[in-house]
Amino acid sequence: MATLLALDHITKSYPMAGQEVPVLKGISFSVQEGEFVTIMGPSGSGKTTLMHILGCLDVPTQGEYHFRNMELAHLSEMQLTRVRREQIGFVFQNFNLLTTLNAVENVALPLIYQRISRQEQYRRAREALARVGLEHRLTYRPNQMSGGQQQRVAIARALVTRPPLILADEPTGNLDSQTGLEVLQLFKELSQEGHTIIMITHDHDVAKWGQRILEIKDGRIVADREVTA
């Protein structure tokens, strides 16, 4: 298996009240293609910041970020946008669907920015929705769907561009345990289909769904272990 991405001594600090507050203090790890990695840590450990850097939503203060054969740590905003658009699919804790758009339109959203035809956008959006089992909810607005359905729409949106990496930030955090399990089952299936997934959680039971758990605490990785079934 080829290495998809590798972080090398990544640090990130935020200016706060005139001082630089370090959030990430030298993170190094790599992820192979096809892996399902969970990053686990308590709140305040820096895991969301880590996800933002992994997802090119933010840049590290120091360190190197290799993604395939690219070096991402020092790219311009325009180049980062391209990486986000083509390489990464996001799933957020609070779904982050646009309330004014229906399910197909939400899923088609990333494709708008890929400049492909409307028919193709919708065809692929319907396909992605079918993959997550929502082919009968195409024209539903987010507020007409349950939390589990909304999160599946969000997963379809992450899948629709067929990105090499899916990043999920606490995807079950806003769901009851039953629908949470369904969403986790979906991630497991996606992993079995060959998708590379990095999932962030504070919950040990959720973390166990991955093949490998990275534990993060106070901005450092404190454990890196394979999950034994």
């Binding site: 997802g55 939503l57 905003e77 325009m78 946008t81 986000r84 658009r85 083509e86 996001f90 982050n96 669907l97 646009l98 959203l109 990333p110 920015y113 890929q114 949106r157 561009t161």
Partner: peptide, 14 residues
């Protein structure tokens, strides 16, 4: 703001 964030996350450029 959140909508802008979402759009940027899914690939909207400046």
């Amino acid at each position: 703001t959140r909508e802008i964030g979402i759009r940027k996350a899914v690939g909207a450029s400046t």
